[in-house]
Amino acid sequence: MNTQDYIESGILEEYALGLLSEVERAEVERRAAESPEIRQELATIAAALESYAQAHTHTPPAGMRERVLAGWQAAIHQEAPSSAAPAGPATEPVVRQLVPEAEAPAARFSWLMAASVALLLFSAAANLVLYNRWKDAETSLVIAQSEQARVATTMQAVNKSLASRTAELSVLRSDEFKSIELAGMPAAPTAKARVLYNAATKAVFVDVRNLPAPPAGKQYQLWALDQGKPVDAGMLAATTTAGDSLQQMKDIGSAQAFAMTVEPEGGSQNPTMETLTVLGKF
């Protein structure tokens, strides 16, 4: 581009208005240094802008001269000790490019928008994941709780049965108790049971070895025979009949023999002699 075209291109006007980028500005200054015509043109343009600025001349209000000059003096004396201050402004170019700063807020805003949307999406996804995990955790918790309750119940049952077994064991090992073997009678020859009797405390326990299952609606009843007279010693529970455990019967003051008969549920006043199953004497 020759000098005249360059002048005509209008780039010098943009230069004077401070609208050029750093690179373009340097190019203008390089060409101006080489060409007196360009220098002349730039001077004219600057003068044009000067006169346009001049046209806006506005006499400052009264008193401003003193305030401004005093403020200026205070400022330069305050800044004088820090020698770094003048260096800053000195390096700044007089004709400045405004474009980067102008676009910054809009760009920053859209970046902020994009960032917020991204954050929102990320947060939503994270929420979904966390919600699902929380649901799973809750389900597991319910399962664990019911399991725990079940274990506790079992534990309780085990403790209870352990306690009763311990009690039974203490009866069996005790020297206080006398053991009476009850042998099977003609009605049930294979039947076998044992009575443990403590004469001091009058406690009676039954330990069934083998008894035929009673007919429906019937139950075994234990009798103590005191001087040939039968005394009710209580009904045998179904578990006792099955030989599951010892059963404590009614207290008996004195007895020489024990026997069992099959009676209607709830027991009878007097034994039904035909159903006499087992009998044993001291």
């Binding site: 200054e29 730039l42 001077a43 600057a46 003068a47 802008l49 000067e50 400052p60 401003m64 305030r67 401004v68 000059l69 403020g71 200026w72 400022a75 330069i76 800044e79 201050a85 003048p86 800053g88 402004p89 000195a90 390096t91 700044e92 007089v94």
Partner: peptide
């Protein structure tokens, strides 16, 4: 205007008369 005077005072050594008139600067 006051800030301008301070800046002009400090930057004055960097003003290059060959590049343009004082008033433009």
């Amino acid at each position: 205007l006051q800030e301008g005077l301070v800046k002009i005072w400090h930057s004055f050594p960097s003003y290059d008369a060959t590049k343009g008139r004082l008033f433009t600067w």
